[in-house]
Amino acid sequence: MSDTPKLRIRDLKKSFGAKVVLNGIDLDIGAGESVVVIGGSGTGKSVLLKCIIGLMEPDSGTIEIDGENVVGLPRSEREAYMRKFGMLFQGGALFDSLPVWENVAFGLMASKQVDRADARKVAIDKLAQVGLSEDVAALSPSELSGGMQKRVSLARAIATDPEIIFFDEPTTGLDPIMADVINDLIVKCTRELGATGLSITHDMASARKIADRMAMLYQGKIIWAGPVSEIDSSGNDYVDQFIHGRAEGPIQMAVRRG
């Protein structure tokens, strides 16, 4: 592993109006590493991912990809970095106007690497990688169950062989068995691609399975980061409360967040 991390985030800040969501995030992710950011609902996990991918512009701070800062780059140059990314969206975000295979092959066809016939072959390959047969290729996403949609979404995220894959709550809304299937697929697919992974979740079982390293987001900052093996002995009260899912502790659930 080289010295420059694949992804280095420094003092990243993002507010919406008066509401501070990210308040100085520092995070490093090495090449080939899988980092999971844990945190409660509404703590800004999705906002963090969107800032890194380039769907949102942070207010300040730096995001370096392979040592190059991408914050403030013009749209066209930012898009070049997006090609290195794959993203599994929280709700799947499959295009319901297109059949499954066109969803999976969308990125390939959009970047003009391949024509439709070849793209279809790649799509069926990728579907096989996530355990789906050729039969589903022609179906519409709305005909699939939630777990199947997640798999298709995963196939779409890995279809362009991205260098970094982002997972936004990959197991939320799935039953525990399907969640575990998705976890296994995430581990397998990122490993096969040799890709770097950044996941966000509040599902601890999933986090333990996917992560090499974990980081906890609380009140706009990373309050703890370390290898998975140390998560149970972090000595951090906030982390302890979160991983054991206790209502009592330093983290207070606000009804309305300022």
Binding site: G54, F85, G86, G91, A93, F95, G107, S111, R156, T160
Partner: peptide, 13 residues
């Protein structure tokens, strides 16, 4: 609202 527009952007579209 189902993030399909965000997904387009991440798929170089």
């Amino acid at each position: 609202v189902t993030e399909q527009i965000d997904a387009l952007t991440t798929l170089s579209t």
